[in-house]
Each structure stands twice: as structure tokens, then as C-alpha cells.
Design a protein around this nucleic acid. Structure first.
Length: 165
DNA sequence: AGATTGAGCGGCA
DNA sequence: TGCCGCTCAATCT
């Protein structure tokens, strides 16, 4: 099995990828240089055409300029997670652009607990591609692995959050 | 195999 | 608002 851990840089944004036999199993959101080193361990910077193409998709997703469903059709990925997390992420996949669901709502659908749903979000290996940023708390925005500032940015870019002080 | 830990939630003061 | 207890998959001991 061939494992590849790379980072692609596009105008100051760093996106990390892990491939298993050329199939995407993990990615990061666009991060600063400091953040990528904090959140992701990688082997090399990649300049491969299809890696750059993927990174551009991730950037577009972050800035709300592309649909996640579209990216999922373009990219060869596999969800390398437990059966439970897969079930949760399958629900999350169906949350449309520009709308949100709460941890509790998803928990109810799957007959589990909100905390268990949150745990699965934390383990989402394909952020933005699987839109876990669209899962929020009932009374607040909820958490985000890369920091809630990013979650707020993404939701702003999708037009979900309009005014924020 | 048991204890602890969360990207949560509802109830009650 | 703030706290307390319930929850349940995943992650320690």
C-alpha cells in the first residue's frame, strides 16, 4: 500500500492531503503556515497537477464558491472511519449548501446522542468535502477541529451567518 | 473490562 | 444566565 502525505501551497494558503494508493483519505482546510504545522504532519510539498487541482477545489469550498457535492463527484476519495462515524457523515453529506443542522437533530435521526454526533464530526477526515461545518449546536455555533473562527468564516462565506459583531 | 472524555442537550433555579 | 445530570462512541488505563 502506497501512502502519501503532502501539502499544496496556493497564494499563502496551505492544504494538507493524505492519499492511500492515490485515493484521498484525508484533507485539511486551507491553513496558514503556522496552522498547517500545528495540525498536520506531512512529508513534502507537492506540485503535482492533480494535487494542485484538488487544493483549488478545497479553497473554493472554503470561500463558498463551489458545491461540496460537485467536489465529491470529481475527487476519488474513501471514508476511512468506523461504521458509526460513516453513518453520521452520510447524513452530514446531505445537508445542502447554505443551511445547517444541529447535533441533536442528527442524533435523533440516528437514535444516538448529540455528543456521539459531535465526536464523529471531530473525526471527519474530509472537512469541507464532507460539510461538517454545517453542523452546529442548538444555542451556539458548536466546535470545530481547526478552531471555530474558521467555522464562522466558512459559514459566512456560504451566507449562513449574515451579521456578526 | 472498566473509567474517562467530549465539536451536546434538557431541566431547573 | 449557570449548574447538574444524562447521554454514548471513542479513547484511555
Amino acid at each position: 500500500m502506497f501512502l502519501e502525505k503532502v501539502v499544496v501551497e496556493i497564494n499563502g494558503y496551505f492544504v494538507g492531503f493524505i492519499f492511500k494508493d492515490d485515493v484521498l483519505v484525508r484533507n485539511t482546510i486551507p491553513l496558514s503556515r503556522d496552522e498547517i504545522n500545528k495540525f498536520f504532519s506531512w512529508e513534502k510539498i507537492s506540485n503535482k497537477k492533480h494535487h494542485i487541482k484538488m487544493a483549488k477545489c478545497i479553497l473554493r469550498l472554503y470561500f463558498g464558491k463551489m458545491l461540496d457535492s460537485e467536489v465529491r463527484e470529481l475527487i476519488d476519495y474513501s471514508l476511512d472511519v468506523t461504521p458509526f462515524t460513516k453513518k453520521v457523515l452520510d447524513v452530514v453529506k446531505n445537508i445542502p449548501y447554505g443551511s445547517v443542522k444541529t447535533y441533536g437533530e442528527i442524533a435523533k435521526e440516528l437514535k444516538t446522542s448529540p455528543r456521539a454526533v459531535g465526536r464523529s464530526m471531530n473525526k471527519n477526515p474530509l472537512p469541507l468535502v464532507i460539510p461538517c461545518h454545517r453542523v452546529v449546536g442548538k444555542d451556539n455555533i458548536g466546535g470545530y477541529s481547526y478552531g471555530i473562527t474558521h467555522k464562522i468564516n466558512i459559514l459566512k462565506n456560504e451566507g449562513v451567518i449574515t451579521n456578526l459583531k
